[in-house]
Design a protein around this nucleic acid. Structure first.
Lengths: 200, 200
DNA sequence: GTCTATAGCTTGATAGAC
DNA sequence: GTCTATCAAGCTATAGAC
């Protein structure tokens, strides 16, 4: 039997991914996790907000580990990034377009309404970006280029999730993935780094 | 005095942008628009869902016109796209990171919970993409390349809104904008179109 | 068409037995 | 720590006077 607290957090993360923060009720979380209402407030005295913070952080780390596993399974960074987009598209397709970014919906919901949770989502994104910086530098990019690419990579993936879920199609993710992979390849190519010769 | 129905739709669009679909109450919409509850159901017998559909479509068209105005104000497509990212960053900063995409939050909320509204958001995105295709072809891209770029452009902008709102910083939008502009410039350059020599 | 009042339900949160 | 019962407040939706 798994830990009750963990079951609550996991159920919260799953429900947030599908229905968002305001769209998910505590009773729903209690039912999904098999825990009574009392246990929710026992483990999270701060109520829904505290529980949400824990769920966001947990799924943020979980998703990073998932992405890192994909990158680790590839021969190089360029191939790994391509695999991430292909894997994201496949996960969408297999889940009827439910399995996407675990925190994006909540991040947009709370951005202008709950500063505590906004900061939590910012922390998760910063963790992902830092991971990307490390990977990029390892692959041969400068620290600045690696950070810019990581931000661009994450943003493109998030935008892809949005368009794919709305359209219930993986086509957008394919087009977006190609653009991101092309840029990384160009940045890593010693002869013609992207961004050289910017005019503005 | 403006039209009551229009005031209701506008208020809905504004509130949805900040608090999302489930996070916005009909009473709040009534208060913000200055219309009584009865008027909401007079103009939108289908209730919240019908009102939401109208608000999403209206703000979708409104935002497209805003973007097109920026593009029309630029000397060429590359400059126009750069201006869109710069303008998005400025709008975020001036609104304390509230003025972003008018439909993204709702799109993610309803993607797995309300198929009627999901289709409406898909329709808005498709309208935006088609506009981008027209612009891209006009600038010299093939229809296929123009569509891929439009999808990529929109996704990157949406991802930028997400990261900027979470971090309350415009830095992500700057890095993302550079990547998108670089790709468009490469695609339009006759000597080395991006995507040439794909390996996967 | 406008507006008020309220029904019926669900929400987040709490009290208290065990 | 677990579980049930319940509160006050919020929601969507509706009824009915004007």
């Amino acid at each position: 039997m798994t830990d009750t607290r963990e079951r609550i957090v996991d159920a919260t993360a799953v429900l947030f991914q599908r229905a968002g923060y305001t769209g998910t009720g505590l009773k729903q979380i209690a039912a999904e996790s098999g825990a009574p209402m009392g246990s929710l407030y026992h483990f999270f005295p701060g109520g829904k907000e505290e529980l949400a913070a824990s769920a966001l952080l947990a799924s943020g780390v979980g998703y990073r580990l998932l992405i890192e596993a994909v990158l680790d399974g590839a021969t190089d960074y360029v191939t790994g990034v391509a695999d991430v987009f292909a894997g994201a598209a496949e996960a969408l397709r297999l889940s009827d377009y439910a399995d996407a970014c675990p925190i994006a919906t909540v991040a947009l919901e709370v951005a202008s309404t709950n500063d505590t949770l906004r900061l939590v989502t910012a922390e998760v994104f910063e963790d992902w970006i830092n991971t990307g910086v490390h990977r990029g530098v390892e692959a041969g990019l400068s620290a600045a280029a690696a950070r810019d690419f990581a931000i661009f990579f994450i943003a493109a993936l998030e935008g892809g999730f949005l368009l794919c879920r709305a359209a219930k199609s993986t086509d957008p993710m394919a087009a977006i993935g190609r653009a991101v992979v092309d840029r990384l390849r160009a940045e890593l190519s010693p002869t013609s780094p992207a961004g050289r010769g910017r005019r503005r």
